[in-house]
Amino acid sequence: MTASLARHRAWSAPCPRRPGYRGQLWLMLAPYLLGLALLVVVPALVGLPLALTAYNALEPARFVGFDNLVELATDPIFRTSVFNSGVYVALAVPLRLLGALGLAFLLFRPGRGVGAGRAAVYLPTVVPDVAWALLWLWLLNPAYGPVNGLLALVGLPGPAWMVEEWGARSAVILMLVWQIGEGLVACLAALGDIPAETLEQSAVDGAGVWQTLRGVTLPLLAPVLLILLFRDTIFSLQSTFVPALILGDGGGPNYATTFIPMWIYTNAFEYLRYGYAMAMTWTMYGLTALLLFGQYRVARRWRLGFADAE
């Protein structure tokens, strides 16, 4: 069967192997492209019209125009969730980025304990979200938790963590700052891509450690740092979900850990308001895009600053 097919092709096509090979490559690519289309592109597009409807998945969707967006604008909990997500992005994302970068500088060059150190730093990242959140629920127990126990050892009063609004927000940031293994790997890889000669040249030119860092290393790392910044910003919109569900017991106290995904989830899967939740999803897209654009503008200005310093 295959033999006859091959003979047929050889007979019909003037140059049989090349187009056949190219076609085979496209076939190998097909599952991935289909997956992207069906699991990412189509879901995103299907959602767009749904944002203009009232839909509870039991009755047919009813067109309501821009009602959902109007309601969003006046929804106090949505406004709180935007504020919470904003606080997270403003505090946790820079902390995670600086942490990953600092640890990468420490753990880059080969040496004693470097391999074990890298593994230790990465280890919290592999802990399943739910287990990690439950662990921190225990660690941050206001009365008996080890964190407040440690604080008491050095004579500091422990906060009530998940009972107060800012305590709860800090708790979520704290537990996610530990999971920076992927950022570490990306920074290590970026450091590995800097040619040794460039650094040696800088040293020969008499540049100190700090000057080399500012004038050579950081500008060369800038693209990777920017990608990490974007990625962390985008993922912060989903990585807060499990902490909010478990530490905040569904977004509490007083909606302090109701980040945008938590409020989307609550509306969609508890109130069965799919249309409204979809409008929120698209608003989140828009806000994220705005944020990324702002970060890009700032980063570009920083990079120009680096170039001037040289």
């Binding site: 879901p43 990625r231 989140m284």
Partner: peptide, 17 residues
């Protein structure tokens, strides 16, 4: 670009699909 789409954005559509 696809890596930039947060899972949050496709929860709902995937659920319906």
């Amino acid at each position: 670009a696809a890596m930039g789409v947060p899972l949050t954005a496709v929860w709902l559509s995937r659920f319906l699909m």
